[in-house]
Simulated scan of single mutants.
Amino acid sequence: MSHANSTLHFNKQYDLQIAYWLLACAAVIFGMILLGGVTRLTNSGLSMVEWKPLMGIIPPLNHADWQELFFKYKQFPEYQKINAGMSLDAFKSIFMYEYLHRVLGRFIGIIFVLPFLYFYFTKRIKPGLTPKLLLMLLLGGGQGLLGWYMVKSGLVDNPDVSQYRLTAHLGNAVLIFGFIWWTALGLLSTPKPQQAGLNSFAYVLSGLIFLMILSGGLVAGTNAGHAYSTWPLMGDSFIPAGLYSLQPAWLSAFEDITTIQFNHRMFAYLIVALVLTFAFKALRAEISKPVKIAVWCLLGLLALQVTLGISTLIFYVPVPVAAAHQVVAVALLSASLFISHSFFHSSGQPN
Rank of each mutant, 00 (worst) to 15 (best):
residue 245 S to G: 15
residue 225 G to S: 09
residue 139 L to S: 09
residue 56 G to N: 03
residue 214 L to Q: 03
residue 182 W to L: 04
residue 168 A to L: 15
residue 79 Y to L: 04
residue 2 S to N: 14
residue 210 F to W: 11
residue 45 G to N: 04
residue 168 A to S: 15
residue 97 Y to C: 00
residue 120 Y to I: 01
residue 343 F to Q: 00
residue 228 Y to H: 14
residue 350 P to F: 13
residue 116 F to Q: 07
residue 53 P to D: 04
residue 136 M to K: 03
residue 147 G to Q: 09
residue 85 G to V: 06
residue 41 L to M: 03
residue 326 Q to H: 06
residue 34 L to K: 00
residue 32 M to E: 11
residue 35 L to R: 06
residue 349 Q to T: 11
residue 26 A to Q: 06
residue 273 A to S: 13
residue 63 H to T: 11
residue 176 I to S: 12
residue 34 L to P: 01
residue 170 L to N: 05
residue 314 I to H: 00
residue 114 L to V: 15
residue 300 G to N: 11
residue 279 A to L: 02
residue 270 L to P: 03
residue 265 R to S: 09
residue 194 Q to N: 10
residue 342 S to A: 15
residue 211 L to I: 13
residue 304 L to N: 13
residue 317 V to I: 15
residue 247 Q to R: 13
residue 63 H to S: 14
residue 274 L to V: 13
residue 16 L to Q: 14
residue 329 A to P: 05
residue 260 I to R: 09
residue 282 A to G: 12
residue 269 Y to T: 01
residue 286 E to M: 11
residue 350 P to H: 15
residue 4 A to I: 14
residue 13 Q to V: 00
residue 42 T to G: 05
residue 58 I to H: 00
residue 179 F to H: 10
residue 295 V to C: 06
residue 110 I to W: 12
residue 183 T to M: 05
residue 174 V to M: 11
residue 195 Q to Y: 02
residue 97 Y to D: 02
residue 122 T to H: 13
residue 104 L to P: 03
residue 215 S to D: 06
residue 223 N to E: 13
residue 19 A to T: 05
residue 153 S to R: 02
residue 13 Q to E: 12
residue 103 V to M: 03
residue 345 H to G: 01
residue 70 F to N: 09
residue 95 F to D: 01
residue 294 A to T: 10
residue 124 R to D: 06
residue 1 M to T: 00
residue 159 P to Y: 12
residue 57 I to W: 09
residue 13 Q to N: 11
residue 248 P to G: 06
residue 165 R to T: 04
residue 38 V to K: 10
residue 113 V to I: 15
residue 189 S to D: 12
residue 150 M to P: 02
residue 15 D to H: 02
residue 260 I to Q: 08
residue 16 L to H: 10
residue 217 G to E: 01
residue 128 G to A: 01
residue 40 R to E: 09
residue 248 P to W: 09
residue 212 M to L: 13
residue 290 P to K: 04
residue 322 A to I: 01
residue 1 M to H: 04
residue 346 S to G: 12
residue 224 A to D: 14
residue 325 H to W: 08
residue 313 L to M: 12
residue 105 G to Q: 07
residue 91 F to K: 07
residue 102 R to T: 00
residue 336 S to M: 03
residue 91 F to W: 04
residue 307 T to I: 12
residue 122 T to N: 04
residue 167 T to K: 08
residue 209 I to H: 10
residue 319 V to W: 10
residue 148 W to S: 08
residue 121 F to C: 07
residue 190 T to A: 14
residue 75 Q to F: 01
residue 23 L to D: 09
residue 300 G to V: 02
residue 62 N to Y: 02
residue 55 M to F: 10
residue 188 L to H: 04
residue 183 T to C: 07
residue 133 L to D: 11
residue 317 V to E: 10
residue 194 Q to T: 08
residue 194 Q to D: 04
residue 100 L to S: 10
residue 323 A to E: 02
residue 265 R to K: 12
residue 117 L to I: 15
residue 63 H to D: 15
residue 323 A to I: 04
residue 243 L to I: 05
residue 50 E to S: 14
residue 20 Y to N: 11
residue 155 L to E: 05
residue 281 K to C: 12
residue 116 F to N: 05
residue 305 Q to G: 07
residue 293 I to Y: 15
residue 205 L to E: 06
residue 347 S to C: 08
residue 204 V to R: 05
residue 115 P to R: 13
residue 67 Q to L: 15
residue 310 I to Y: 00
residue 106 R to L: 02
residue 116 F to R: 09
residue 342 S to F: 08
residue 231 W to R: 01
residue 265 R to Y: 08
residue 165 R to H: 08
residue 336 S to D: 05
residue 47 S to P: 07
residue 306 V to K: 01
residue 219 V to K: 06
residue 99 Y to C: 09
residue 239 I to C: 07
